[in-house]
Design a protein around this nucleic acid. Structure first.
Lengths: 132, 132, 132, 132
DNA sequence: GTGGTCTAGACCACA
DNA sequence: GTGGTCTAGACCACC
């Protein structure tokens, strides 16, 4: 499992890890029951503090993305479809609106954005298929 | 101009102001040359520190959304479509991907997201038309 | 707000803080909008690391017990009645069963336990009334 | 003797075994002088490390729940009602309070909890009667 | 070996 | 002033 961290980003390191793990799960690069690198392994491989990795793993577990088996390690959980709460839906919508407004200012058209969405979705499907 | 701030949100107050001003500009609620409330007016109306409003205005001016004329006040700038740099495009794409992944985990389908995009765009057009 | 920590307990320090804050909220010692001591204040008053207090506060916020206002501090949230999920109900039931079994081994009768429950409940009501 | 282990639980495996054995004793599924499976038998049947089972058995013996007769095997001990020390009583009370507070936050009423207690007690009696 | 917790101390953004 | 993040390094329980 390859994780790429940008220490200059304003996104917290642990958040970057969370996002990448989720991305890999969605894209099928990580499949249920796959073992994640141990806290120490990952922290030394990307040269950050073990605590930071630990925090990321704990949050991922809280979200049900991974499970930790005592003394054995950390594993990708079974995919479970959650039911989004209304709050969460509103939040996502707001996020989307934010992006659209930003794109408008950057002169990016809705057509371009639609193309991106298709791309992203295609990538998710393809990679998932490759591995199944 | 009505600004709604949520002090409990994890989004910085000054960021919330920036977003709302930009949103109003894009939706046509604020038009070029419209006058914005002064820092003191706005800060007292939403009960936050004037420094926070000031910071928001400064950032908005830096982005070319508004202009301040010394002694006259702050006004909405002429809409100028920027040319997005490659970095910015990649950033927006990444943001979009992040949302899509998140929605996937929340059980929100791509169709629903597409509907949202249509909604948001329609809202932007309609309100802009009302005012033109 | 007085917090008592037992560093010898096998319960994590941050957990002890969480429990005590919740207890004080339920008993009415802490009321909505009351300000909690800052991370630094509390950590120095009970002589533990600020990170530990921070972790407790973050978890409390995640649970909706408290809210943090950026740069202002941490406050007791409005009481909101959650809807327990089935999983949570089963977990609580299991916990209760565990205690009952343990009590059985210790020769504690069900009548004694019932008395405890009454006591605990009375304490919660009384203190809440005192403050309202 | 059927033991069900959840490796994903945050409760240590050896603790889960202890709890289940005690539960079965209290419910009358296991009676004094009943033979328990050997460490190897149990460890292979629930697919965990023999050391873990061994640890559980040792702790159960320490608590006087079971006895091991060298060369013969492990057996359920005579039920002996202990005299609870004050420390233990306080600890159980605290545990109970913790649960009640938690339930309060989950919107579970005291009436519901009382029903649970009745249920649990009934189950303990019935199964004990079946076997006597 | 694994993850969980804690300390000591630092820097940063926010208000 | 506030909380949020991160590092460096330690100890512990569990398997």
């Amino acid at each position: 499992m390859i994780v790429r961290i940008d220490p200059k980003s304003n996104i917290p390191l642990y958040e970057q890890i969370i996002q990448q793990v989720k991305e890999m799960c969605v894209k099928g690069i990580l499949k249920p029951d796959d073992k994640l690198p141990s806290v120490r392994e990952l922290s030394s491989s990307i040269v950050i503090n073990p605590n930071t990795v630990s925090k990321a793993y704990q949050e991922l577990e809280r979200q049900g993305v991974i499970v930790t088996l005592r003394g054995k390690g950390t594993f990708v959980a079974e995919h479970q479809i959650q039911e989004a709460t209304e709050k969460q839906v509103i939040a996502m919508k707001k996020e989307l609106e934010k992006i659209i407004i930003e794109c408008k200012y950057l002169g990016i058209t809705i057509d371009e954005m639609n193309k991106w969405v298709q791309e992203i979705y295609r990538e998710m499907r393809e990679q998932a298929d490759d591995r199944s």
